[in-house]
Design a protein around this nucleic acid. Structure first.
Lengths: 152, 152
DNA sequence: CTTGAAAGTCGGTCGAC
DNA sequence: GTCGACCGACTTTCAAG
């Protein structure tokens, strides 16, 4: 799909605030409501805009303990990888999981309540997964930046 | 702020799809439109709901090259830390930055177009920041999971 | 791309329980 | 806390230029 500067601007604005009305957007973009509406629908249909979500304040919901966990598998067969990835997807504490280059196979971003909850998560969930070789946890001391906004 | 099971359910639903109308939510929750409306407003006012955003498909906007960069600073004075954090926040390629425990001081999640763009980013942006000691890049081979949904 | 009009839906406020 | 009703504003679709 092709898009121009106006589409980029729309995506920027919607990444900042998805609750803006098309009327507000039309004023900012100096376009008609219909034009903005059609462009947004096109971006949604084409899949560029994947979803609209509410982002929560991690502190206020007491889920502020972020851990990066590097995971190494015991073997690296297709079946092992597929099974591990299927299992890890089910863990709601794991917000992100990436297959990566380097010393470890995967990086997991895990969000729990506190160290106790993390211990519980490791003992009862992560380390019970099949094919887990070793893990290495890096704990967040402070969040400097956390954004979903991709500059286009 | 205190909240009950209904509030939790609302937060879950809005984290999945923020474009649902209060009417749709009221049907799912077996409540009146007004009741749902008031609860959402309370969650917004209290700051539990931080913002509503559009999430984009990274592949379709050709910004699919994810790198985790571990950064070590040269010194660790208050001024050094404050300045580094201020500078790194300005880099739009850095979506996330965490001060962490362990061998490195910071973990950065960086999103760029490709390896070439990453090289350019490193040479012209990240390594030009003051107080940068060493860096270690881990490249994403595949995305297994990437969610903003926090289970409450 | 624009404007304008139409129909239906929704947000936000109200008084009442 | 809950509800139903109200109205202005909004979305969405359409035709026409």
């Amino acid at each position: 799909m092709e898009w121009d500067e106006i589409d980029k601007k729309i995506l920027t604005l919607l990444q900042q605030d998805a609750k803006q009305t098309t009327k507000e957007l039309s004023l900012k973009l100096h376009l008609s409501v219909t034009a903005v509406y059609e462009r947004i629908k096109k971006l949604e249909r084409s899949g560029v805009i994947e979803q609209y979500v509410a982002l929560l304040n991690k502190q206020k919901i007491e889920r502020n303990f972020v851990v990066f966990c590097h995971v190494k598998l015991t073997t690296h067969s297709k079946e092992t990888i597929v099974e591990f990835e299927k299992d890890v997807k089910k863990l709601h504490e794991v917000l992100e999981c990436y297959h990566v280059s380097g010393d470890y196979d995967y990086i997991l971003k895990i969000l729990v309540q506190n160290m106790e909850a993390y211990r519980e998560f490791m003992v009862t969930k992560l380390t019970t997964l099949k094919h887990i070789g070793s893990t290495h946890s890096i704990f967040m001391i402070g969040e400097v930046k956390n954004s979903t906004h991709i500059l286009i």
